[in-house]
Design a protein around this nucleic acid. Structure first.
Lengths: 132, 132
DNA sequence: ACCTCATTTGAATGATTGCTCAAGTGTTCT
DNA sequence: AGAACACTTGAGCAATCATTCAAATGAGGT
C-alpha cells in the first residue's frame, strides 16, 4: 500500500512558470522531487519525542536547575512554585528518558542532570528565541 | 502572594546526614538552595514554546525537507504521505514562528526554510537519540 | 509497633494538540 | 464569467498532556 493519504495530484516546477506537465499522476505530485525523497527521510519520530520532553516550561526549568546543582524533589517544587506531586510526575518522565539520575539519602531523594547534551540543546534554543 | 502551591516544608542538606535544621519554614524547603535561585531562573517558557513546534514528527520532517529544497504544499503532502490540508495547518504554525518563508508562483505556493538554526537543533537532537 | 516525613503512584479533570472534512480564498485558463 | 486548481481556514473529534487530589510506599525516629 502507498498510504491512506495518497491521491491524484498534479505537477509543478518552480521558476519556469510551466503548466502542469502531467495532469493525473497517481500517488505523486512532482515526480522529480518526490521520487528523490523516496526512503531518504531520516526517522525523526525519536527526535520529535525528545523535543516533546523539552517542550514543557516546568521540565525545561527542572533540567536547568539540575544542571547547576543536585536538588531534592521538595526543593525543586518550592523553587518552581509547584507541588511535590507534580514535580515527581515530571521527574518520572525525565527518568524514563535517562535525562536525570537520582540517589536516595534517607527519606530524601536527590536528583541531578544525567545528560549535559540536553542542557546544550536548551541553551541553544534560548539563544535562538532571544535575538529576533 | 508567593503562589498557590507554596506551603510549609522542611530543610535537607545532602551528604551530611543532618536532620532538618528548621522544621517549619514558611514557603521554602532548603533556605540556602531555594533562596539562591530567587529570580535567577531564565524565562524558559519561550524555549519550551520553540520545542513544542519541533515536537511533532510531521513538522520536524517538513523542516528537514525545506532545509534541502524549496517545495510546494502539494509535494510536501505527497512526500510525507499526508493531506494538503494537514500540511498547510503545520506550515501555518511554522510560519507564525518565522521558521519558514514562502512565495507564490501563480497558483502554487513554494515554501523553504527561513531559519537554519532550527535545522541545527534538529540534527543535534538526531545525533543525541542515535548514540545511546 | 507506631508515627512522621519525603516521595511515588493512580485516577480524574480540564486543556491542548494533530488530523479530517467541508467550505472558503485566490489564481489561471478558456 | 465560469471552471479548474492550489492552498487556506474553521469546526469537530479523538488522543494526548499537565495538573491536582487522594492513597500508597519507603525510610527514620521514638
Amino acid at each position: 500500500m502507498t498510504g491512506p493519504k495518497s491521491g491524484i495530484r498534479t505537477t509543478h516546477v518552480p521558476g519556469t512558470g510551466k503548466t502542469p506537465s502531467v495532469v493525473c499522476e497517481v500517488f505523486s505530485s512532482d515526480p522529480q522531487k518526490v521520487s528523490r525523497w523516496q526512503g531518504q527521510l531520516p526517522a525523526l519520530a525519536a527526535v520529535a519525542g525528545l523535543f516533546k520532553v523539552l517542550a514543557d516550561e516546568t521540565r525545561a526549568k527542572i533540567i536547568y536547575l539540575l544542571a547547576h546543582e543536585e536538588l531534592c524533589v521538595c526543593d525543586i517544587a518550592t523553587i518552581l512554585d509547584s507541588t511535590v506531586s507534580n514535580i515527581s510526575h515530571h521527574l518520572r518522565l525525565l527518568r524514563a528518558h535517562h535525562l536525570v539520575k537520582y540517589h536516595r539519602e534517607g527519606k530524601v531523594v536527590f536528583y541531578s542532570l544525567d545528560d549535559e547534551h540536553v542542557l546544550h540543546l536548551i541553551s541553544e534554543a534560548f539563544d535562538h528565541v532571544k535575538h529576533r
